[in-house]
Design a protein around this nucleic acid. Structure first.
Length: 554
DNA sequence: CGAATTTGACCGGC
DNA sequence: GCCGGTCAAATTCG
């Protein structure tokens, strides 16, 4: 990472605040910390609802009129939450490392005079605190649940109130590792404690999960134009260059993903960057384009992997995502790809939703489908179409989804303006930096034997207010997971030159994953994890959003 | 014959 | 000059 040429400058965001890069970094830190706190909440809720645990055992739940959550889902949630927490810690670690290596960045503690920013728990004091993972995991297998720092409402008790977790400022203290907190055996024990093997899914219930409540923060960050960041951190353009388009919105922001130029294997990252940066996602000049500019510059990009299924229209040769109105308008051979990319747009009048479909090199029956922009055609017409956009779901654990349940979902209302794209990209940026850093701290290096698997950083915001709220949220969540899928693949490619190993990962997914083999599989289980996440959310339950909280119907 | 698809030129970013 | 996204004429399909 470049050092020394960083000039902290006053930035003006669309939100009206003036930010420096250091303030942005501080905000990211704060937000990740808050995300971790929320994850801890979720962790507690998972434990509380785990079958067989005293005092929150089944009888008490039944007495409270509650039903049990599927043990398998609980197990999967637990594993994924662990991974997500790990990724947040990695992101924090990496962010702190960046700061510590950039003398031009004032430390967060020095930048307390931030206009328009809420006080950060880190702004006045920097405390070394025990890893939440340590606090949570060790008691998981060693102590009764009654000693857990959570109430039975899922809220942390006072000593663990949200915001109490502060990140580490010193690199030497930076990485709370899973290895330090709970070894694999303990985790295995924990898992078996929570989820007895062979238990079947039971009933339906609503589980209210707390929102991360980071909407405004993410929006501010996404809209902030940080001209004094080094290239690897800047959301736009050439190294050290200011954003070239002052009107960039959160969703048209361009990204320099870390190490893209240094890592020849990072084709997918680069590809996504190209997509994001390409003129195709930006309006050409001209009256019509001017008129549409506001819409298009807010277009979001989501990538999903879809499998060509026997029921799909074989004449078209692409997976059916449920929307019948796609009109092909182009076809292009893509460099370093064995297959052409097809360009489709919604045939509905004035609807500018687009998608690009390209078979993956490794498996031509798996298509990378890039959705660009949101449907502006009527929701009524779209509602007739059903989506089953996801990948390789047929190999997922069958007991996650009742065989007679209609798992087809409403047509995807593509992500709208100001959506999660930037949030996801920031998470990716942080994650990739954390993953690819060659100068991770010693503490971080101790985690390499227990690689974190996924990151679900940018989640749980209420963004939709229209009639499609519920299904829309599901779609957003799905697309977020799609990004995680991409992240997983990219990280796997970034961090391993072993192509054979990567192939094994794909094959592994085809056979579905054994989550407890993840530690041996390292980064390659990222993809499997993410796909399992998607599977869980797409086929085993329905989720919706209400009052900034996620409702999961299992 | 109209709709859908294909194809190559064109364009702008890099 | 390369690359990828878009346009629109040409072609194919039903």
């Amino acid at each position: 990472m470049e050092k020394g040429n960083i000039r902290p400058e006053i930035l003006r965001t669309r939100a009206g605040g003036q930010w420096t890069s250091a303030q942005c970094i501080q905000k990211v830190e704060e937000m990740i910390s808050r995300a971790i706190c929320q994850q801890e909440d979720l962790w507690g809720m998972l434990l509380i609802h785990s079958p067989g645990n005293v005092p929150f055992d089944d009888s008490i739940r039944e007495a409270n009129g509650e039903e049990s959550i599927s043990p398998l889902l609980l197990k999967a949630l637990k594993v994924k939450l662990e991974n997500s927490m790990d990724w947040c810690h990695l992101a924090l670690c990496r962010l702190k490392e960046i700061i510590s290596h950039s003398s031009s960045f004032p430390s967060p503690a020095d930048s307390s005079e931030i206009t328009g920013l809420s006080p950060s728990p880190s702004s006045s004091t920097r405390l070394k605190v025990p890893s939440p993972l340590s606090a949570l995991r060790v008691p998981l297998s060693k102590e009764p649940l009654s000693s857990y720092p959570f109430t039975n409402t899922g809220r942390l008790q006072n000593e663990w109130s949200p915001g109490s977790f502060l990140f580490f400022n010193e690199a030497s203290q930076s990485m709370p590792s899973r290895a330090q907190t709970c070894d694999g055996e303990q985790l295995q024990e924990s898992a078996s404690l929570i989820v007895p093997d062979g238990e079947q899914q039971q009933g339906h219930r609503f589980l209210r999960l707390p929102s991360l409540g980071l909407d405004s923060d993410w929006n501010m960050l996404a809209e902030a134009q940080v001209s004094d960041l080094p290239a690897s951190l800047s959301p736009r353009g050439a190294p050290g260059a200011a954003p070239t388009e002052a009107h960039q919105s959160s969703s048209s922001c361009q990204f320099n993903l870390p190490d893209a130029s240094d890592n020849g294997a990072d084709n997918e990252d680069q590809s996504l960057v190209t997509k994001l940066n390409s003129r195709g996602l930006r309006p050409r000049c001209g009256p019509k384009r001017d008129r549409e500019e506001n819409d298009e510059k807010n277009a979001t990009v989501s990538v999903v992997f879809q499998e060509l299924k026997p029921g799909d229209d074989t004449k078209k040769g692409i997976p059916d995502d449920g929307h019948r109105g796609w009109k092909k308008y182009g076809n292009k051979t893509i460099q370093n790809s064995n297959f052409c990319r097809g360009y489709y747009k919604c045939s509905m009048k004035d609807c500018r939703a687009k998608k690009m479909v390209q078979p993956t090199d490794k498996n031509p029956t798996i298509f990378e489908v890039t959705y660009v922009g949101s449907h502006t055609c009527s929701s009524t017409s779209r509602r007739r179409h059903r989506s089953r956009a996801t990948s390789k779901t047929t190999t997922a654990p069958t007991n996650l989804s009742p065989p007679d349940q209609d798992t087809r979902r409403p047509a995807p209302p593509l992500p709208g303006a100001g959506d999660i794209l930037v949030q996801t990209k920031i998470a990716r940026l942080l994650k990739n930096q954390a993953t690819c850093s060659t100068s991770m701290t010693e503490a971080a290096e101790t985690t390499t034997s227990t690689q974190p698997k996924s990151n679900d950083l940018g989640s749980a915001e209420n963004r939709t207010t229209c009639e499609d709220q519920l299904e829309g949220k599901s779609w957003h969540e799905n697309h977020e997971l799609s990004d995680v899928i991409n992240d997983s693949k990219e990280v796997a490619e970034d961090c391993s030159a072993d192509q054979e190993n990567f192939d094994q990962t794909e094959n592994l997914y085809l056979d579905q994953i054994s989550s407890r083999d993840e530690e041996e599989l390292g980064f390659h289980s990222f993809q499997s994890d993410s796909l399992l996440w998607q599977e869980i959310l797409s086929s085993s339950h329905r989720e919706g959003w209400n009052d900034h909280e996620l409702q999961v119907e299992i």
